[in-house]
Design a binder for these strands. Structure first.
Lengths: 394, 394
DNA sequence: AGTTAGTTCGTCAAGTTACCGAACTAACTG
DNA sequence: CAGTTAGTTCGGTAACTTGACGAACTAACT
């Protein structure tokens, strides 16, 4: 079907006439006319006016009808649950944030379901127009069982079928994906990278992990464990048995590492943000701690670049995106790799995973609606306005 | 066109009837009949007999006509040039090996062209039936200029357009690709891995490098430098400026590293194979040298697994495939990664790149013949007999 | 051995789908 | 008015499907 191509042309090129769509897609004018008529009658696109001032007959221009359907993107964190409702253009309509229910397990399912239902009500949209929900989780979803493995901060989430239960409660399609993977997709979508660029999102927070987008697709790996950079074999001694529990790199390049290193140097236990504050005042122990951690993260970045050779490595996460650390990482990394390397700060901050959820949802929606039965179709969702996502950051 | 699907079904499922092809491809019987008639008349497939003993009418079975076209796979090494001629089923017909012309540059082009022409003569095949040649080179082909960058062992190869010149001399399509990348494709094709399995081929010889197959496709990276594991930031001090010339890992995990380490321990300069021999006699210095090198290669393997999470890492290269080293690598790697990991010895040995060239050539041939103009078509070349490749190893 | 039922192969004819090309009408600029 | 562009109508085609049917075979029964 050319339907898919037509939808994409309209989505990408904003308000556009049928004649132009025909040129872009390479189909004939009346093939396009037929499809457009069809799409308009089913409500997916709408006419929004005329061209004017050009020579020749005025053209009717069409655009994706934003309110034809909605998608929900959920970021389930250890501390907070964030839910956003977006329209078909990827514009955020409403956002809702709550503390994560500490009971875990089914309580989480109930919480997410309630939040998704109430956000559609808040936005004043009929619930039936919600077509899909994507949930980012801090762990590895098991595609067989739907359980979330390796998620220490949320209890009992590895004992239930999150996707299945949510699907039942919400009565819409549900996709569950690792939050760092979603963040990588989000940055790839909105972070000023080409559609074909390979990018890696490196998240540094309580742990360290990477999401990898190659050829527009997430690299998942055999066990869904691609990007587990915490187990890179340097930092702490990788051959020490203790490195089998907490990875060798993770021991020296995450929240706990900063706290512990500062403690070792000074005998004083401070929180991460206190240590950052101390560094800003020029305290040498704090500065040395940050230097040391940045050095290890820089090595991780170089390891990723040596193996993947991406267009850019985007660094995010609660501590990774702090400029003081980022500058040090960039500086150190450039010292141990022969070519120029591109390390960037996340442009989406805490909303990277949410944005990734939105693009995943929209992609899935387009596939199911317009490419049913087609084997391999490249579907590109045009980037939304980045401000939609960043502005909402609380 | 369904033509592509029909060809694949016949290629994959050996001698097969039209009715079975219809079932496999999901097309109707006479669509298949038409296409088969067409393919038979153009010579790409041939009838080879009847089914028998089954209930019902006998079926005429067809197979790919092996001699409809041929492809050449060339492995250009620093010391040797290896050329093989294969038929459409991926069976090696003839192999030719020569020392690499030491003059480099255009002399290499002339040498390869001469060898390719003479091998078709040797095999007694009309030159016009040769459709494509794939050349594996120890360096990074620049897709713009056709020059081969970073190829220290072959002189002046970075100053000429290898692909273009060969295409002109041979008058067939020519693809030039990095040899480790081809080896990765070869192992992926013949090494008992699933079509969708991600595998990494790690070559350890004069240098260390990896070829990465993800989702059936080579991972190339922004600069074509994916898999440059020599620059992984451990082994030697990665922040030392000397690690910008020879990568930190490459300094301790390749031919020279073995020689130098043994020299440092004993004061004696031996070749790599002499050191392996010494290790076999139980000489402790040699054993310790191998242990130390294996330890670093194991770290490289773990780094790859942590980032890519492939189904398997296949180790090859002149020293990587030596069992003494491989056993040590496997053992050390398992000690610093929490999950079970699959490290395998190359099954193709020196013929991995050749096999990769063959599958690349056959793939390209199928695309150009049967999928012309189609956007994205998965084309799977059924594995050939691995013996065809390994047996020829000299 | 002969008959009959059941199965599968391959073909024929008619219909469907998704597209295209060319001619045509509509609406605008200058 | 001519010139230009937008959209429609009409007819046509390539690729595929569906369903009916004869040919060729096996198996089982008489």
């Amino acid at each position: 079907m050319s339907q898919c191509a037509v939808v994409q042309a309209i989505a990408n090129c904003g308000p556009i006439s049928r004649a132009s769509v025909a040129k872009i897609t390479g189909r004939s004018k009346q093939t396009v006319s037929e499809i457009v008529a069809n799409l308009e009658s089913t409500g997916w696109i709408q006419a929004v006016g005329h061209t004017e001032g050009h020579i020749g007959r005025r053209a009717i221009v069409y655009e994706i009808s934003p309110s034809a359907a909605y998608v929900a993107s959920v970021d389930l964190g250890g501390a907070r649950v964030r839910v956003t409702l977006c329209d078909l253009t990827g514009t955020v309509l409403t956002e809702l944030v709550e503390p994560t229910n500490p009971n875990g397990g089914m309580a989480i399912v109930d919480q997410i379901a309630r939040m998704v239902r109430s956000i559609t009500a808040l936005a004043g949209k009929p619930y039936d127009d919600l077509h899909i929900a994507v949930v980012g989780v801090p762990g590895v979803p098991d595609p067989e069982t739907g359980a979330i493995m390796m998620s220490p901060n949320i209890c009992n989430i590895d004992r239930i079928d999150l996707a299945g239960n949510l699907r039942r409660q919400l009565d819409v399609n549900v996709i569950v994906e690792n939050d760092v993977n979603l963040a990588a997709r989000g940055e790839h979508w909105l972070g000023n990278h080409g559609e074909q660029d390979d990018i890696v999102y490196l998240s540094v927070g309580t742990g360290i992990g990477a999401g990898i987008v190659v050829g527009g697709q997430l690299l998942r790996g055999r066990n869904g464990a691609a990007g587990e950079v915490g187990f890179l074999p340097f930092g702490a001694d990788p051959f020490d048995p203790s490195s089998l529990k907490t990875g060798a790199l993770e021991q020296v390049a995450a929240t706990n590492a900063i706290i512990r290193q500062y403690l070792a140097r000074t005998g004083v236990r401070k929180t991460v943000s206190e240590i950052f504050d101390a560094a800003e005042t020029g305290e040498s122990n704090a500065l040395e701690t940050l230097d040391s951690v940045a050095r290890q993260i820089a090595r991780a970045t170089v390891a990723i670049i040596a193996i993947i050779d991406p267009s850019a490595v985007v660094i995010g996460g609660s501590i990774g995106q702090r400029t003081e650390l980022l500058d040090r990482i960039t500086h150190q990394a450039s010292k141990c790799f022969p070519r120029k390397i591109r390390i960037e700060k996340t442009r989406l901050g805490a909303h990277a995973a949410i944005a990734g959820g939105v693009v995943t949802a929209l992609h899935q929606l387009h596939v199911s609606l317009f490419a049913a039965g087609q084997s391999t179709t490249e579907i590109i969702i045009p980037p939304s306005e980045i401000e939609n996502f960043v502005a909402g950051a609380a």
